[in-house]
Simulated scan of single mutants.
Amino acid sequence: MTRAIALGLIMLITLLLVSGCNTIRGAGEDLQQGGEAIQRAAS
């Protein structure tokens, strides 16, 4: 059960990254914005 959930999350994240950006640079920017959002939420 846990393995299925983990696999589903990995597939979802991969899908979001692929659909949200067309280049490696875009992927880096998306990851950076995600990290900044996490930092804002944590503070």
Rank of each mutant, 00 (worst) to 15 (best):
G28K: 12
G34D: 13
A41V: 00
L16H: 02
G35N: 08
A6Y: 02
T2F: 01
I24Y: 10
A4P: 01
E36R: 06
R3D: 03
G34F: 09
A27I: 15
A37Y: 05
T23K: 02
A6V: 14
L7P: 00
V18S: 10
G34T: 12
L12R: 14
G28L: 14
C21Q: 13
I24P: 01
G26F: 07
L17D: 04
Q32G: 02
E29P: 01
L31K: 12
E29V: 13
S19G: 05
S19Y: 11
M11W: 08
E29D: 14
T2I: 05
D30H: 05
L17H: 02
A4H: 04
G34V: 06
G8Y: 00
N22R: 09
L31D: 07
E36F: 01
I10R: 00
L7E: 11
G8K: 10
L15S: 10
Q39S: 10
D30F: 09
R25N: 13
L12I: 09
L17Y: 02
A42K: 14
Q32R: 07
D30M: 08
I5S: 07
A41D: 01
A42R: 14
L31T: 09
I10D: 00
Q33G: 01
L16W: 03
G20N: 07
A4C: 06
R25V: 15
L9C: 14
N22W: 05
G20M: 03
L16M: 10
G34A: 14
Q32N: 12
G26M: 02
T14A: 11
T23L: 05
D30A: 13
M11Q: 12
L16Y: 00
I10T: 04
S43I: 10
S19E: 15
M11S: 11
G28C: 12
A41F: 00
S43N: 14
L12F: 13
G20T: 03
I24R: 04
T14S: 05
I10E: 00
I38Y: 04
I13D: 02
A37P: 01
Q33A: 14
V18F: 15
R25W: 11
I38G: 02
V18Y: 14
A4K: 03
R25F: 08
T2M: 03
G8H: 06
Q33M: 09
L17S: 02
G28M: 15
L31Q: 13
R3H: 03
S43E: 15
I24M: 13
R40M: 11
G8T: 07
G20V: 02
R40S: 10
I24E: 09
Q39C: 04
L7R: 04
A4L: 09
Q39R: 15
L12V: 04
V18L: 12
T2E: 01
E36Y: 01
V18C: 05
T2C: 04
L15H: 07
G35C: 04
M11H: 06
L7H: 03
G34R: 06
G26H: 03
R40C: 05
G28H: 12
L15C: 08
L15M: 12
S19D: 13
Q33R: 06
C21Y: 05
R40L: 11
I5M: 06
S43F: 09
I24N: 09
L17V: 12
